[in-house]
């Protein structure tokens, strides 16, 4: 793919995240490997609708240097660290979808609960150590939690997914959000002895737990 095509791919993935409800309120960030040394990342503080393909930023994976008037995402360190650690990976997506964020707030390791999830991400999905945004602790926690996996939660923050292609990374994000909801719903179903549950049921179990 040409640089221009990769920039467009990043823009399209951002818009697709928004359309599928996989970003909520805040935006997250996306990267794609351009070659052995460079990645293309989303810009800082710009929403995916306003963002043009040329607003994406080419960043050196080793040094994090960039030659652009547009500032790259503040989470470029994590994207670069993942691409350095995982040569087979070419696309990384970070977002804060609702249900994945709820699991991230519990700082749990979530077992793969569908065959598709197991095939896409591995045995389970771990949570990286808590750290303030853009810190070394957060970066190291994410890289460690992603070892031999294609997804990890970031404690109290959101989720990182990665894939050989952008399409694969996107598919993993979609499956992780579906399974995160299912993970919580399954507990509610077991507690209430119901086969189907809604928000009122989840809230009922919540009040039982905090009594």
């Amino acid at each position: 793919m040409t640089e221009q095509e990769l920039r467009q791919q990043v823009k399209d993935a951002g818009v697709a995240l928004l359309k599928e409800g996989l970003v909520r309120g805040t935006w997250g960030n996306i990267s794609v490997r351009m070659d052995d040394k460079k990645m293309i990342v989303t810009p800082s503080g710009m929403d995916y609708i306003r963002m043009k393909p040329e607003d994406t930023v080419v960043v050196d994976i080793e040094t994090l240097e960039y030659d652009s008037p547009v500032k790259p995402t503040s989470e470029k360190k994590i994207h670069a660290a993942i691409l350095r650690d995982r040569p087979e990976i070419n696309a990384v997506i970070h977002s804060h979808p609702v249900w994945s964020s709820a699991v991230a707030a519990a700082r749990k390791t979530m077992p793969s609960i569908t065959p598709k999830m197991k095939e896409l991400v591995g045995e389970d999905v771990r949570t990286g150590d808590y750290g303030l945004p853009s810190t070394k602790k957060l970066t190291e926690g994410a890289v460690k939690a992603l070892k031999d996996r294609n997804a990890c939660f970031l404690a109290n923050h959101g989720i990182f997914v990665c894939g050989k292609t952008m399409e694969e990374a996107f598919e993993i994000m979609r499956e992780m959000e579906k399974c995160s909801k299912l993970y919580i719903d399954n507990i509610v179903k077991a507690e209430l002895g119901k086969e189907e549950v809604d928000s009122n049921d989840v809230i009922e179990v919540f009040y039982k737990k905090i009594k």
Binding site: R24, G25, H96, V98, W99, S101, A102, V103, A104, A105, A106, R107, K108, Y130, A155, N156, Y183, I184, I187, V188, V202, I203, V205, F206, K209, I210
Partner: peptide, 17 residues
């Protein structure tokens, strides 16, 4: 609303941090 879901959901999972 997402914060409310995270608090409720993580409590249901047994560990709202």
């Amino acid at each position: 609303e997402k914060g409310a879901i995270a608090y409720v959901g993580s409590t249901v999972l047994g560990n709202a941090v």
